[in-house]
Amino acid sequence: MLFPFFWMVKTALMPNKVTLNYPPKLLELPIVIDNFVKVLRSEGMTRSIFNSFFIAVVSTAGVLFFCSIAAYAFSKIRFRHSGFLFGAIFATMLIPSQILLIPMYVIFAKIHWVDTFLPLIVPQILINGYGVFLLRQFMVGIPDSYIEAAKLDGLGHFGIYARIMLPLCKPPIITLGVFTFIGNWNNFFGALIYLDSEKNFTLPLVMNVFRTQYTVEWGTMMAGATLTVLPLIVIYLFAQKSFIEGIAMTGVKG
């Protein structure tokens, strides 16, 4: 399973000329980093890394804030129609995203959001059935006595949310956060649809161009692929355990 990753890194560390040697060898010396230098120096590369990073960070922060605060309301505040509203938000998970694709594009075109980052960030923040559901399920399990005690201490709902609930909800927040970051960093389809001008390109879009541009410069291509994957692997290694367990739980029970 790891072999393609190995082959990717190995090719990335070879001079382009050597990749054309036949037969291919398992290990090849000398190891060079020219390909990485070339990729990082190529037109628009640093910009696209920044763009991808910006979109992923803003989306993750937004999703975590708006989902957790809604989840807090749905789990710990009694208000009118809360059951109905939660059901409606949950039901959005059942609507296939493809059907919304064309009308969303039209709407964003009409309000001049096409070729900005907004269509890639705003919708998932403002409606996220999965995130609200995941966090609510966890928050329901937190005893009400914590909240009653905080109320006696004079905390309002914002205070309880920020000082009591958030610290207690670290595990599901990490899961949702990692999930959202990775999803946004990898988002190819959305970027392909909404971003037109090169200054707005994200990393997957630049890589897509790379794939055609450097047809036989295998080393350069693989260096690009390695750079795309690198941040994910770092994050993944840090959060691996809680992440995989979260998937196994929600996957089977969902």
């Binding site: 605060i69 208000f79 709407i107 705003v122 403002l126």
Partner: peptide, 27 residues
């Protein structure tokens, strides 16, 4: 409680209308 409950879930409800219900009928 009623006020804060609605305030906290309002963003999701706005998103539901703007990014799901309207596009659905439009499609």
């Amino acid at each position: 409680d009623n006020f804060y409950g609605h305030l906290f879930v309002a963003p999701q409800i706005i998103g539901l209308v703007l990014f799901v219900l309207i596009p659905l009928f439009f499609a």
